[in-house]
Design a protein around this nucleic acid. Sequence first.
DNA 1: ATGTTC
Length: 478
Amino acid sequence: MKLQELEKIGEYIYKIYKEGISNVPAVVFADEKIIDSLMADQSLNQVINVTSLRGVVYVFIMPDVHWGYGFPIGSVACTNYDEGGVISPGGIGFDINCGVRLLKTNISFKNLSDNLKEKLLDKLFEYVPSGVASESDIKLSKAEFKKVVEKGLNWAVENGMASENEIELVEDRGVKDNVDVSNVSSEAIDRGKCQLGTLGSGNHFLELQVVDNIYNDKVSKVLGLYKDQLVVMIHCGSRGFGHQVATDYINLMLKNMDKYNIKILDKQLACVPASSPEGQKYITAMNTAANFAHLNRQIITHKVRKAFREVLGKTVSVDLVYDISHNMATIENYVFNGKKVKLVMHRKGATRALPPFHNFLPDKYKTIGQPVFIPGDMGRYSFVLVGTQKAYELTCSHTCHGAGRTKSRNQIKKEIDYTDLLKILKDKGISIRASSKATVVEEAPEAYKDASIVVDIVDKVGISSIVARLRPVGVVKG
DNA sequence: ATGTTC
């Protein structure tokens, strides 16, 4: 390669740098096959575009990388806050604070009859609205909604949908600092006020899963996970609310970039200095949407508990393991390569993977590092990992977020038939409830890499450490 | 991802 320099710098580690464009190299964690597909794809240009942003100091690309809006999904972009480093909504994504939470039950899967599993899925599908325009049974006025999103998970505690102990297991206790709903548009509030406790569509899901394999007994024990245990994984975000916040601020930034003399290679990289008035406003609006997403996953958890109790009785327990975010930006002082910098850390399809004894960790997980959940596709596996010291040193404490798409929605629709897919899943013991057949086909396992491949890479590189494998047995989709 | 192509 000439201008687009790709250099292998270690086992599963590459650098990408384009002379005259990149301010810093992107460090890519991948195997050869992933590198090949990256080089053949638009996502290569997106990686290079990110390395050209003003004030960018570190770019990390994860093995689940694929094309996204402006920034590739599977990227971490850190800019220097004190030196005019930018913040860009495209580096966070439209679904602000999309994330995953894992719930553990006190039920062994072998004790759950098919009949009860089906009943449970019926109830879950009934109680958790899913699909694009789905609305919640919680309908708030605009004024009420504003208070609710400012309170974040504290509102769930006040309303009996979460316990004080439980919210310790959510990043920032589910209440972001620096929230200001007055920087959120009236349209966003309109879209969000009837969507709390709804799943959404696309790759979002609620799954009944079984702990299928344990790779680390000690850590599993601390997390309260054991083989054959029934668990619940929830993957969703901030719905139309976050989407509108992102849209509003992309437009605002496009209008204001000239003022800061910012030139970008793609309109989708719209950005302003994080310390500018527009940047500050976006940060407060993004944090408000982040509160929404935490609350959304919490309210869904409450509904899951209701469904479980009705089907399985009062002795059933459904406890939060942890709640992670994979579309978010934070501003943090970080010591990297011996240098202390205030970083604007954009993570888009990337998960925080904090090392053991990090300040941000809840007491019960201090010794093991931050729990990391990597959802795979509906037919194969999802994974539990933990953050490591090596992630602190190599990626400012980040790892991957999923399997990564290999086929577009349109492509997979041409290849897979809904009825065939349902039969294949049924033969594997996986039942489905979905509000849209098209969505199920778009999310077919064949449209994704096997999450095992991605997880194996991050584990071997050491930017997180594998703990357990989870296998889906029931799926609720939008 | 999304009141599914502003």
